[in-house]
Every structure is written in structure tokens, then in C-alpha cells.
Simulated assay, not measured.
Amino acid sequence: MRRLALILLLAAAPASARETIGIYKGWGAFRDPGRCYAIARPVLANGRTGGFASVGTWPAKRLRASFALRLSLPRDRETPVTLSIGERRFPLVGTDRLLWAPDAATDHALVMAMRSGRSMSVSAVDPGRRPFADTYALAGAAAAIDAATLSCVMRP
């Protein structure tokens, strides 16, 4: 539940509260009061908007490099969601649109795979039982994650 609250905060932060740390290819690194994060929009979502993938650090919550994703469409909560990075597959859990890793070990492995991967794709099924996927380019992700993490470590 704590992760859900943090993800909702990420999605709801006003743009005026953000400090840009840097832009790294398709990924941006930002700082808000109390947190820093790397974030990107999908490069392929079949015209849908509103999706994003992020890796955030919240020093006061002792969370570092924690993955969160917002789907470009609501999903059927009865079906599993899978994130693919290269040959690796990771289960995700969450609400109809907001997702995260089911545990700390998966979270860590997923972020490490992002650092060396070329792309990642999240596959889900919408409430009408139609499959869909959001695809992200990972070029710049490692640099954005590092910049965001260092920004929070240097200025908590």
C-alpha cells in the first residue's frame, strides 16, 4: 500500500514543483520535494497517451531506484501483466493502470535489466479482453536513473 501511495504522488505532482535534472535521450530525470525520479513515455502505444515508466528514489521513505509504471489503458485486473526486457520476463502487480514489482528482489532485478536493455514492453489485457502493449526505448534510462538517484543522495 505504501508503494501505491508513492506512485499516486508521482502521477499527481504539479509540473511547477519539478526541477529538471537532465534529459537523456528519451528519458528525463527530475526532482520534486522529497523525491527524484527518471521517467519516460512509451515510444509505441498505438496512439494512446498517458502511460509512463519511472524509477524513483524517496530518501525519507528509504526507497531507492524503485520501479513504477502507468499503463496507457486500463487493464483487466483478473489477468496478469508482464514486463519484458530482452529475454527476461517480470510480473507486475497493482491497480487497473498503476503497476509495480511484487517485491524488492523483483524490483531490483527489473531496474538492473533496464540499465542494460535496449527496450522494454509491458503486455496486458484491457477490460474488453483485448491484449495491448506499451513499448519503451531504454536508451538513456541508465543515465537518467543515475542522475535522479545521485540528485537525491547529494541533496536529500
Rank of each mutant, 00 (worst) to 15 (best):
L150E: 13
L10H: 11
P102A: 02
P131H: 06
A11S: 15
A105P: 00
A11G: 14
F67W: 11
L138E: 13
R2Q: 10
A12P: 05
A142V: 09
M1G: 13
P42D: 12
T106M: 04
A5V: 04
I39H: 03
P127A: 09
V43F: 13
A68D: 06
S151Q: 06
A124G: 08
Y24L: 06
R64G: 01
A133T: 12
R2F: 08
L71M: 05
R64V: 13
C152D: 04
S121Y: 00
V125H: 03
P80M: 03
P91Y: 03
D134W: 07
I23R: 13
V125P: 03
I85K: 10
I145V: 15
A45P: 12
H108W: 07
G50I: 14
D32H: 08
K61M: 14
A40D: 09
A148G: 03
C36M: 05
S72H: 04
A113N: 06
P33I: 03
A5G: 11
S151C: 07
M120A: 14
R155P: 00
R77G: 08
R3T: 10
G34A: 13
T106W: 01
L138Y: 12
T135G: 05
R129Q: 14
R35Y: 13
A124N: 04
P102V: 02
R115L: 00
F132A: 05
R41D: 13
M114G: 05
R62P: 00
R129H: 15
R130Q: 15
R97G: 00
A60N: 09
L9K: 11
A101F: 04
A104D: 14
M154G: 01
I85L: 08
L44K: 15
G128K: 13
T20F: 00
R48P: 02
R41T: 14
L6Y: 10
D103T: 06
A104E: 08
V153N: 00
L98D: 09
L8P: 00
L98S: 09
F132R: 03
A143Y: 02
T95P: 00
A38P: 11
V125T: 15
R18A: 09
P80L: 02
A113S: 15
S16M: 03
G140R: 10
L150F: 11
T106Y: 01
K61F: 14
F52L: 11
L71A: 06
S84I: 01
T57V: 11
F90D: 05
P74I: 04
A113C: 10
P59F: 07
R77L: 06
R3S: 05
A15E: 12
W100L: 02
R77P: 07
R48S: 12
L138N: 12
H108G: 02
G128R: 15
L8S: 12
P102S: 07
A60E: 14
A113M: 06
S16K: 10
E87Q: 12
G28A: 15
W100G: 02
R31I: 00
L69W: 12
L6W: 12
E19W: 00
A141I: 09
T49R: 15
S116Y: 01
